[in-house]
Amino acid sequence: MRAFLTRLRHWSLGLHLLPSLLANAHHRKLLTEMRSLGQQLPTLLKQPLPRAMAELETMQVERPFPLPPETKTRQLADLAALLDRRSPLGLCLRRSLLRYRYLHELKVPVTVLFGAKFAPGETPDKKKIAGHAWLVLGERPYHEDDENWQGYTVMLRWPEAKK
């Protein structure tokens, strides 16, 4: 039920923001660019995750206009992830990777965390592993509801913490 309510909240927010985000021609073009990248993510992720993340960071796009400020860019990335319902990737992974790619271009120092936890299975004696991806900014979750990331063990950080 919680997952359904989270999804409903994302859709509600996405639909609420849609008119204001798409009123600007540059925003519409950027959303198209983001959706195209979102469709490339499953292929990109067929390689080891560190290599895929490095490639995602260095992708060059010739765009005749600058990215909008951080909040608009994040909202457009969220909308692009939300609209790609046919992707084999989960919403959290699509959203995190799109946010990361474009916020990285804006020089926002976010980190992607990839985590896992045991979740209830079909019967009490069987558990399944659930995965989640989210961003942090200065070790604080970046526009992420607490219930979405709490309880996950971080398996990988990108970029990796400097030693």
Rank of each mutant, 00 (worst) to 15 (best):
R9N: 12
F114N: 05
H26I: 03
P88C: 09
L17G: 00
S36R: 15
A77H: 06
L56A: 10
R101Q: 03
A77S: 07
T6K: 15
E70D: 07
P88D: 08
A23R: 15
A23Y: 14
L21A: 08
F114Q: 03
H132W: 04
F65A: 06
L41S: 12
T58M: 09
A52W: 00
T123C: 03
L8E: 09
R74L: 12
Q75V: 03
A81Y: 00
L5K: 10
H104G: 02
V61Y: 14
R63A: 07
P50S: 05
T32G: 09
R2H: 07
D78P: 02
E62H: 13
L82G: 10
K127C: 12
F65H: 06
A52P: 01
R35D: 02
V110F: 01
S12H: 14
Q75F: 08
E62A: 15
T6Y: 15
S36A: 15
H16Y: 13
K29Y: 06
F114P: 03
H27G: 03
P69Q: 10
P68V: 05
R101L: 08
R86W: 10
L82T: 01
L89A: 02
L21Q: 11
L22Q: 05
P120Q: 08
A52M: 11
L45I: 00
H10M: 13
L22W: 07
L8Y: 12
A25H: 11
R101Y: 02
T43V: 10
Q47K: 08
E105P: 11
L97Y: 08
S12M: 11
L89M: 01
T6P: 03
C92E: 07
T111M: 13
L97W: 10
A80I: 01
D125R: 14
L15E: 12
L13D: 15
H26G: 02
Y102L: 09
K107D: 04
G121L: 04
E62L: 13
R28C: 06
L103C: 03
M34T: 06
E105A: 15
K128E: 09
R2D: 12
A80D: 06
Y102K: 04
P124S: 01
S87F: 01
V112H: 05
L45N: 05
E55I: 02
P69Y: 02
H27L: 09
P50R: 14
E105G: 10
Q39G: 02
E62I: 08
L106N: 09
A133P: 05
M53C: 11
G14D: 09
L13N: 11
T71E: 15
Q60K: 06
R28Y: 04
P88Q: 06
T6R: 15
G14V: 03
V61D: 09
P88E: 02
E122M: 06
V108R: 11
K128R: 11
L30Y: 04
L83F: 10
N24M: 10
L30E: 12
R85N: 13
P109W: 03
R101H: 07
K107G: 10
K46H: 12
A23N: 14
L98D: 03
G115D: 05
A130I: 00
M59V: 08
A133I: 01
H132P: 00
H27S: 06
L18F: 14
L22V: 05
P48C: 06
T58V: 11
L37V: 01
P124F: 01
L113D: 01
P50I: 10
H27R: 02
V110D: 05
L49E: 12
K117W: 11
A130M: 07
T71A: 15
P120K: 11
P19S: 07
L89W: 04
P88A: 04
H132R: 10
T6S: 14
L37S: 00
